[in-house]
């Protein structure tokens, strides 16, 4: 289906965008890069309605590291910019790794992190790293600003803690320090440009004296209605001596946190198996890196 009968409103500032969202509550859909939304609208997956095109709002394109070791990423920042950013590569490397696997260069050049967050695909590649890094989503409306931890931003499959007049304007992370490490893992059906069958991000904090992980977060995507934290798995790697057996046990514990479905990219059973394998691979990688 083509989009000839759809109007596109293009605001020239964030304030104007918020005014339009407020006055046309629920009757306008925000388009950022549009790399998924345009397909969904053409295919009739989402209702056809007029679009609020924020693609030109450069004030929402930035990556900043402030004095308190907080990284701020503007919602319209593209995955190319994130993957290539020195700040992200150094202080949030699992997000940089995820950003570079989001899709083809063409997709990475246009797709934005805010779009990925609001599109709320359970398979979105940026989300497991944002969960693992305990990101905060900053939401703007003409009523003011609001901050929501990433995990509570998602209430169910494609259900967001986001009112009709609100816009995601920024995502905030704490910069990783030298005693922290992490990996991003993605299993797709081809390397170039594929939606994840399963993806995962693991963040750990090393205790330099004991060599154990004093803290850990494990997040998986495409295996539940939203990205999930594998809390049982986390418990099994925090302050434990990790050998091959205990890593497999911890990896198998992710099964308690996931509820995958069968779809075109893989069966639920396959996803369960791949989730365990991916987390084991990640733990192996992290324990074999010099601490």
């Amino acid at each position: 289906m083509l989009l000839y009968d759809i109007d596109v409103i293009t605001p020239s500032s964030l304030d104007e965008a918020l005014e339009i969202l407020s006055s046309r509550k629920g009757r306008v859909k925000v388009v950022a890069g549009g790399t998924d939304l345009i397909i969904q609208m053409k295919d009739g997956i989402i209702p056809r309605m007029d679009l609020l095109n924020i693609y030109g709002l450069d004030e929402l394109r930035y990556i900043k590291l402030d004095d308190n070791d907080v990284i701020r990423i503007g919602a319209l920042t593209s995955f190319s910019e994130i993957a290539g950013s020195e700040i992200i590569r150094r202080y949030a490397k699992i997000l940089a790794e995820a950003a570079s696997t989001v899709g083809s260069i063409q997709i990475m050049n246009k797709a934005s992190i805010g779009g990925n967050i609001v599109n709320a695909s359970p398979a979105a590649d940026s989300l497991p790293p944002l969960y693992a890094l305990d990101a905060i989503v900053k939401v703007a409306s003409s009523r003011g600003f609001r901050e929501v931890p990433i995990e509570s931003f998602y209430r169910g499959y494609k259900k967001l803690d986001l009112a009709e007049d609100e816009l995601v304007c920024e995502v905030r992370l704490r910069a990783m320090s030298d005693d922290e490490d992490g990996v991003f893992l993605k299993h797709g059906l081809r390397l170039g440009d594929a939606i994840a069958v399963v993806n995962a991000a693991i963040w750990v904090k090393r205790d330099n004296r004991s060599g154990l992980f004093s803290d850990a977060r494990v997040a998986l995507g495409a295996v539940a209605p939203t990205v999930v934290r594998a809390r049982r798995c986390e418990q099994l790697i925090i302050n434990r001596r990790l050998d091959d057996d205990s890593m497999w046990s911890a990896a198998r514990a992710v099964l308690e946190s996931i509820s995958p479905i069968d779809d075109v990219r893989g069966s639920a059973e396959y996803r369960r198996e791949m989730s365990v394998n991916l987390v084991y691979m990640g733990l192996w990688e992290l324990t074999h890196r010099s601490g």
Partner: peptide, 14 residues
């Protein structure tokens, strides 16, 4: 920068 013209609306090209 390389982009897909099939996923770029004219309003984004202005």
């Amino acid at each position: 920068r390389a982009v897909h013209s099939c996923l770029t609306l004219m309003a984004q090209v202005e």
